[in-house]
Design a protein around this nucleic acid. Sequence first.
DNA 1: ACTGAAACGAAAGATGC
DNA 2: GCATCTTTCGTTTCAGT
Lengths: 148, 148
Amino acid sequence: MTVNLDDVDWAIIAQLQQEARISLSELGRRVSLSPSATTERVRQLEALGVITGYHAMVDLTKVGYPVLAIVRLKYPGNHHQPLRRLLAERREILECLRTTGDDCYTLKVAAASMGHLETLMDELAGFGSTTTSVVYSQPLPYRGPDRP
Amino acid sequence: MTVNLDDVDWAIIAQLQQEARISLSELGRRVSLSPSATTERVRQLEALGVITGYHAMVDLTKVGYPVLAIVRLKYPGNHHQPLRRLLAERREILECLRTTGDDCYTLKVAAASMGHLETLMDELAGFGSTTTSVVYSQPLPYRGPDRP
DNA sequence: ACTGAAACGAAAGATGC
DNA sequence: GCATCTTTCGTTTCAGT
């Protein structure tokens, strides 16, 4: 499943992980490649599924979601469909990871207030027992993986 | 701290959260605005800190990190500097949230193998007691917040 | 706060190395 | 797999509303 990536591929990935909206010409300048060669490399990385997308990041507080929480969910049964439906519907759930261990799901949830978070927790509590931690701060700026 | 956003702002945010590399002209077409008006709106959203950046997302398995784990860290002391240093150095740590509750930090860690994860855990264990959950799957495609 | 026009720079595609 | 060239399209700036 691993793709072989050379120095230039990693340089491209590093640049686009930090600044996804730079032009292909600018990207080419930064990695010392012509615009067309850069375009071809980026196309390949996308086609191979190495780069899966480009996303704007938003300040949750500024858009009205000042409360961020991590919810761990202990989900006993095997009937995952209802939970999948909730994940799709409730846009306050920003991320969901299924994990080993006692808590099968770990969710990241954005809420407009503690009252709103309470409502969301009530919905999730229908699926199993939950453990909620409210996030104080995010001590790490965004970054993706680096070359090994 | 909240910024007032109208329908057009939210439409712009929604588009850029899904596809950050579309041209400003294309974005303008999608939200029914001229290129120059679109440019000005995006510039404002960036200047206000509503949009904090644009990032390429990468398939961790394809770039050589097939093991993803969530690590909860119970950090007793108040000396956070050494941990901050580790966060900055160890690029395998992709995310770090400081939270309420018994486990003060929740980290997302990418590893090349279980052996590599073991090494990383040993480093983290120096700071406090850890609970590690390996991620099976990510049942939710990436998405940011939606309009309330 | 948005439109429209004009100059500049970038993207896309074809060709040759 | 990469560079160069040309056409087409996007970006930027500014006048005007």
